[in-house]
């Protein structure tokens, strides 16, 4: 299974970005092969609105089934749910920390958006 983690830089050592739509990078971690690759999302900085929806399209296209991030707004949550992607909020530290917390079941699956749009 592939999980996407919002990140401020590339790779597992990067700090988790608390934003989803406007995170600079998405680290995609494969839980079977235990390997990671990084997708560039910096174009979102030029988007006035709809960044969360666009980001949901990106992680869906990359095959993610779960998203780990800090917070998730209503449009992004709706798009992710439609794509069947589960959302885990409240991550912190490095991407590797977040993956470990996810594996230990510390992160809880969100049932709705936890912040308003453009928080």
């Amino acid at each position: 299974m592939t999980i996407a983690i919002t990140a401020k830089a590339e790779g597992l050592g990067a700090e988790v970005d608390l934003r989803f739509g406007r995170a600079s990078w998405f680290v995609l971690y494969d839980t079977e092969t235990k390997t990671a690759r990084t997708v560039d999302n910096r174009q979102s900085l030029n988007t006035a609105s709809g960044a969360g929806i666009q980001a949901a399209e990106t992680v869906s296209r990359e095959g993610a089934r779960c998203l780990i991030t800090g917070h998730c707004g209503p449009n992004a949550f709706r798009a992710l749910s439609s794509a069947g992607i589960k959302v885990y909020n409240g991550a912190a530290g490095t991407v590797a920390d977040a993956v470990a917390a996810f594996a230990q079941g510390i992160l809880k699956e969100a049932s709705s958006a936890d912040v308003a749009g453009h928080w």
Partner: peptide, 18 residues
Amino acid sequence: RFHAIVTLGTEPLVFPEL
């Protein structure tokens, strides 16, 4: 081009405010 209608599942989602 405004991501106001996206298809991620079986049918499109509309975001009218976009």
